[in-house]
């Protein structure tokens, strides 16, 4: 349990940092300095400067807000849409259920990144379309998970009792079903943070996500690629930032899953 607490602390630290980061950044992430292009780390620029002389550390700090902000926004979108659709399918049953689940099955027949690349590529590369593309794919996971849980809960006798006592559908969902399935869903959310973060920054790396000059870790790596031989610090720090966040949330997810399994 100590391990989980430590990881929770680290994860909270990362989130707080990403919120405060813009105030901690040593320089303006958008200001270019043509006298200091591709300079290695120094006192004024602790992580060095990029191809137009912008401070890399400041861009990483601002990028934390963008990268983590998008991750949590997407997580919220797929959670809300997925869970609502799952509840409708699970409670309604019949044709609605069949249609929704067939659609989910078809979407899951694609490797997710391939479909995301196609949707974003066609809609046009920007932040909003990336969120649209990925949420069109990932709601399926939460919908399926919720639907199965709802069906399990619905077959319990206390639900029949609640129905006989005159509980409305809304009451059934908010008072009986959601409290039962929420803890499982929240753990799933934590487990998915890393994957979502990697997918978002991966798409940005391919030029299909956040567009420059907005700093985001994936697109910083993409911009830095051309300077692999001359200025490797352009690549070191953004990648390290992604790696740290992803490994903390990965370990946290694992440890939460283990603690549930042992209960």
């Amino acid at each position: 349990m100590n391990r989980t607490k430590l990881l929770l602390f680290l994860a909270a630290g990362i989130i707080v940092f990403s919120l405060l980061a813009p105030h901690l950044a040593p320089n303006d992430p958008y200001v270019t300095d043509f006298k200091n292009i591709l300079k290695p780390p120094s006192e004024t620029y602790p992580f060095g400067t990029d191809q137009v002389g912008r401070c890399i550390m400041s861009r990483i700090f601002y990028g934390a807000k963008v990268s983590l902000g998008m991750t949590f926004l997407l997580l919220g979108i797929i959670f809300l849409t997925g869970v609502s659709i799952g509840i409708v399918a699970g409670m309604h049953g019949g044709l609605v259920d069949t249609v929704i689940m067939r659609l989910a099955e078809i979407i899951l027949a694609f490797p997710d990144i391939v479909l995301a690349i196609a949707i974003v590529g066609i809609l046009g590369s920007n932040m909003v379309n990336t969120l649209i593309g990925l949420s069109m794919i990932w709601w399926t996971k939460y919908a399926r998970f919720t639907r199965v849980s709802v069906k399990q809960v619905m077959s319990k006798t206390y639900i029949s009792a609640a129905r006989l006592a005159g509980a409305s559908n809304f009451n059934l969902v908010t008072k009986y079903i959601l409290p039962n399935i929420l803890s499982g869903l929240v753990i799933q959310l934590v487990i998915d943070i890393s994957g979502i973060m990697l997918a978002l920054s991966g798409l940005s790396f391919l030029g299909l996500g956040v567009q420059p000059p907005t700093p985001e870790w994936g697109n910083m790596l993409n911009e830095g690629r051309a300077y692999l031989q001359t200025a490797p610090w352009l690549l070191l720090y953004p990648g390290l930032a992604i790696f740290i966040v992803v490994i903390v949330f990965n370990l946290l997810g694992d440890s939460l899953r283990d603690s549930i399994d042992t209960i």
Binding site: G202, L221, L228, L235, G239, I242, F243, N250
Partner: peptide
């Protein structure tokens, strides 16, 4: 294993390119 699961492949590729090629 933990490192392997968490490392972004696009970063790993660039790092390997830097180390083994450059």
């Amino acid at each position: 294993s933990a490192v392997s699961i968490s490392i972004p492949s696009f970063w790993l590729g660039l790092i390997m390119m830097f180390v083994f090629v450059v």
